[in-house]
Simulated assay, not measured.
Amino acid sequence: MANFFPRWTNWLPLKVAICGVIIVCGLTGATWYYVTPKYTRVGYEPIQPVPFPHDIHVSQLGMDCRYCHSFVEVAAHSNLPNTQTCMNCHSQVQKDNPKLEPVRASWKTGTPVEWVQIHRTPDYVFYNHAAHVNRGISCFSCHGPVNHMPEVYHAKPHSMAWCLECHRHPENFLRPEDQIFNLDWKTDDVKPATFVAKYGQPSDATEDLSKKKKLSQTEIGETLKERWNIRPPVNCQGCHR
């Protein structure tokens, strides 16, 4: 009996299967890379109704983060400044600047300025700002060098893996509580003798840290971790409640 199909078609199912596997792997890889927070969020810099240069307000004028974000130490959510906060200064400073017209209009009408949200935590994630900043985690760790940003952008991925990196090894990120809002803080700023006198040193330390010339981030972090009994949750219910 004659063959209805040429001989090469015998390999067709295998070729289709191989192509299917390649396509599925390609789509999976592309989704894995392009739909992650690192790709979709990092670098996001929306145009705001009022250009607010953090670098001028913080680095040049010396304003503290808490002047505008006044709830960050006491509430789960960090607030945006209301118009009154802006007008405390701008009723006198650059009061005729056209860029500030939306602020002046908000002041007159009572309608809030419609700021564009940059950092958004999913509804299924519980995050408490106060719990973090009151236990050694700086704004810098999650938001990057905001004090040097002319326009604020999304600097960190805020993915689950990124959060777990800190929860599993908090000693790599902890800093003294009086340096939480100093976004330019470096470990070299710490004087070992003063630090040890205030916080002590880890119980398993093999040397007197107060006599060292400088302390590493790990030494500082391990000390604060033990001093404050920091044990971040690494299970699901810690953040997904």
Rank of each mutant, 00 (worst) to 15 (best):
A2W: 09
R7F: 09
L12I: 12
L12R: 10
K15W: 11
A17Q: 11
C19F: 14
C19W: 06
G20Y: 05
V21T: 15
V21Y: 06
I23E: 03
V24S: 15
G26R: 01
G26M: 01
G29H: 01
T31E: 08
T31P: 01
W32I: 10
Y33P: 00
V35D: 14
P37T: 05
K38N: 11
R41D: 00
G43F: 03
P46C: 05
P46H: 05
Q48E: 12
P49S: 04
V50A: 07
V50N: 06
F52K: 03
P53Q: 07
H54N: 13
D55N: 15
S59D: 14
A76W: 03
S78D: 08
Q84G: 14
M87F: 00
C89F: 10
V93A: 11
V93W: 10
K95M: 14
N97K: 01
V103Q: 02
V103A: 13
R104G: 02
R104H: 06
A105Y: 06
S106V: 04
S106I: 04
S106A: 15
W107H: 12
G110D: 03
T111C: 01
T111Y: 06
E114G: 08
W115A: 00
W115L: 03
W115V: 04
W115K: 03
V116Q: 14
R120C: 03
R120Y: 10
T121R: 02
T121Y: 01
P122C: 05
Y124V: 13
Y124T: 11
Y124P: 03
H129W: 07
H129Q: 15
A130H: 13
H132V: 03
N134R: 08
R135V: 09
R135H: 14
S138P: 04
S141Q: 13
C142H: 04
H143N: 01
H143W: 04
V146W: 00
N147I: 00
M149T: 03
V152T: 07
H158A: 03
C163S: 11
C163Y: 12
E165S: 06
E165K: 04
C166M: 15
H167I: 04
H167R: 13
R168P: 02
R168C: 12
H169V: 08
P170E: 12
E171P: 05
F181Q: 00
N182R: 08
L183H: 09
D189L: 00
K191W: 04
P192L: 07
Q201R: 04
Q201K: 12
P202S: 06
D204I: 09
T206W: 08
T206C: 07
E207Q: 10
E207P: 06
D208V: 07
K211I: 04
K212M: 09
K212W: 07
K213C: 01
K214V: 00
L215K: 12
T218C: 02
I220Q: 10
I220V: 13
G221S: 11
G221H: 11
E222S: 10
E222T: 12
L224H: 06
E226P: 15
R227V: 08
R227E: 06
N229G: 12
R231I: 13
N235I: 02
Q237L: 13
Q237P: 07
G238W: 02
C239L: 06
H240N: 09
H240R: 07
